[in-house]
Amino acid sequence: MPQLHLTQDDAADALLSRDPFALLVGMLLDQQIRMETAFAGPERIRSRLPGAPDRLDPAVLAALPEADLAALMAGPPAVHRYHGSMGRRLQDLARAVVDDHGGDAARIWVDAADGPDLLRRVRALPGFGEQKARIFVALLGKQLGVRPDGWREAAGEYGEDGVHRSVADVVDEASTARVREFKQQRKAAARG
């Protein structure tokens, strides 16, 4: 099993590496906060669940009362800057995985016919727009070996080799810094 190094925190990275739903949750949370914080979020959530299970069960999160989920997301420390709205998105994602994929997040990519189908399946998830879906397809291909025909094309610019554009390219602290630098340059160019 490939070992991810997205957070530079051993426990958080181990959970992301062994639990497909945790990886999806990290990607969901990767919005308006540092990517390391976002991808450490699943471990924070897991550790706060009753009994601290060894993985995130989408059925458990889907069934959690809204007040309990809100408290879990709020911390302290908070899982996300916008813990209320992200908690609702997390629950929507958990319900989609349960309802549409039998509770097995890996089926999203294992059952994909090809790259375009994989992108369509990821984009259909609550909280996953076009860019986030492309980045996730790139992450699956580059780091987990999920490479159905056409995956690079489906990932767009994020699927290219030798770039540091997103979490798909993070393998250590140096690559994290290069991705952060790329994002800052892109934001500066957009402000123009």
Rank of each mutant, 00 (worst) to 15 (best):
L6M: 03
L6H: 04
L6C: 05
T7Q: 12
T7Y: 10
Q8V: 12
A11H: 07
A12R: 09
S17P: 06
R18A: 15
F21A: 11
A22C: 03
L23V: 06
L23F: 04
L23Q: 05
L24Q: 11
L24V: 10
V25S: 08
L29P: 11
D30H: 14
I33N: 09
A38T: 15
A40F: 06
G41S: 12
R44A: 15
R46I: 09
S47V: 13
L49P: 09
A52K: 13
A52I: 11
R55P: 01
L56P: 09
A59Q: 12
A59E: 13
P65S: 08
E66H: 14
E66W: 09
D68G: 13
A71P: 03
L72M: 05
R81T: 14
S85F: 09
S85N: 14
R88G: 07
L90G: 11
Q91N: 07
D100W: 12
G102S: 09
A106S: 15
I108F: 06
W109G: 08
D111L: 08
D111M: 06
D114V: 01
P116E: 11
L118S: 01
L118I: 10
R120P: 04
P126K: 05
A133F: 13
R134N: 07
R134L: 02
F136D: 06
V137M: 02
L140E: 04
G141T: 02
G145N: 00
V146F: 02
V146A: 01
R152A: 01
R152H: 01
A155S: 00
E157V: 12
G159D: 02
H164W: 11
D169Q: 09
A174P: 05
R178F: 12
R178V: 11
R178S: 14
R180L: 15
F182L: 04
F182M: 03
F182H: 13
A189Y: 05
A190C: 03
G192Q: 14
G192A: 15
